[in-house]
């Protein structure tokens, strides 16, 4: 394997990590807001607070890691994407900033403002929408190189059905991932009311998720036949993903093996995410930039890989400790423990 491919795999893994942990976070915020609207907030707020509080900062780091990493391994992306993404990414930053800081304000400062909870819930859907636009742009057809400078065609982007399909898929995924995870988490916390409610949401959002995923593949045929052929050529991976999806839904339907269902969910998205990534190879921005043209020099690549391995040696034990103390700690999850907050 060459360094280019190694670099993009590492980054893709981190982006995948972000997609999963951020989806849980974004979806939880949305369900929380929705339950306030329907006067069911007492059911969800505890469980959501307990999961989110110690880990929210960690979520953000996955994203930072991805974009710092991609500029490190592929400095040309700073030029291409940096130039065209000013507006959508700035909006995403502002939403992330409001969301992240107000989460801290609310949970560590003063509690219980309704308007805030709605803003928090809505931002959880707007952020994935604005970030998913980056994937749409990478599919090609929206960026022209004029006088050696990349230019984004906003009009084409906003009128393309593909853009909106990807936005809808990102929202459906966020809600589905979050609902499945919280179904399990509530079950583990022995909060049966919350468990039932989340199970219902998980089953509801399974439909739109698979519908949008199929719709996008069909649209690709029109939008970019070249990319469509690539996607079809690795159909077994998408097939595995679909099978895992059906198994997850079945488990949740039958209320069996909920821990397993979260595992299958993650695998489902892993397969779909990597199938998509592989079909995108070798392009970073179709058709202008490939991972080979955009790559940094050998010396930098090697030192980044070494730093990455050293970093992982530090992080994996730390993350294990974090999860052991909170996510997988029965006493903590069920809330039987005293409050040890500072």
């Amino acid at each position: 394997m060459n360094l280019e491919v190694l670099g993009i795999i590492v980054l893709w893994i981190f982006l995948f990590g972000y997609v999963i942990v951020a989806s849980i976070d974004f979806g939880a915020g949305f369900f929380n807001a929705y339950s306030l609207l329907t006067n069911k907030s007492h059911i969800l707020s505890n469980i959501i607070q307990r999961y989110l509080s110690p880990v929210w900062e960690v979520t953000n780091v996955f994203l930072v890691f991805f974009f710092v990493g991609i500029v490190g391994f592929f400095p040309q992306t700073a030029f291409y994407y940096g130039t065209v993404l000013l507006v959508p990414v700035s909006i995403a930053i502002i939403l992330l900033a409001v969301r992240g800081s107000y989460y801290a304000f609310e949970s560590y400062g003063s509690r219980g403002h309704k308007g805030y909870a709605f803003a928090y819930g809505v931002s959880g859907l707007l952020i994935p929408s604005s970030l998913s636009v980056v994937l749409t742009i990478s599919e090609g057809g929206f960026v022209d190189i004029i006088d050696d400078l990349p230019q984004l065609d906003f009009w084409a982007l906003f009128t393309s059905p593909l853009t909106w399909s990807i936005v809808l898929l990102s929202i459906a995924s966020v809600l589905y991932i979050s609902a499945v995870f919280l179904t399990w988490y509530a079950w583990k916390a022995q909060d049966w009311e919350a468990h039932e409610l989340m199970r219902k949401y998980a089953l509801i959002w399974a439909g739109p998720l698979i519908f949008m995923a199929v719709a996008i593949i069909i649209q690709m045929q029109q939008h970019n036949p070249d990319r469509f052929r690539n996607m079809i050529s690795i159909w077994p991976m998408f097939g595995i993903s679909a099978t895992l999806f059906l198994m997850t839904v079945w488990l949740i339907w039958k209320k069996r093996g909920l821990g397993l269902s979260v595992g299958l969910l993650i695998l489902q998205f892993l397969f779909a995410f990597f199938a998509y990534g592989i079909s995108h190879y070798p392009y970073l921005l179709y058709p202008h930039l490939t991972i080979y043209e955009g790559f940094t020099n050998q010396e930098m690549a090697i030192s980044l890989v070494i730093a990455f391995i050293a970093g992982l040696c530090l992080l994996i034990p730390s993350l294990y400790l974090l999860f052991r103390l909170f996510l997988f700690n029965k006493e903590y999850v069920t809330g039987n423990q005293k409050d040890f907050h500072a």
Partner: peptide, 20 residues
């Protein structure tokens, strides 16, 4: 790019332990 990349690790490390 190397120190920028390492900074994310340092920050990651800090964030985890601050949470704990």
């Amino acid at each position: 790019a190397l120190p920028l990349f390492m900074e994310t690790f340092a920050f990651f490390f800090e964030a985890i332990f601050l949470g704990i």
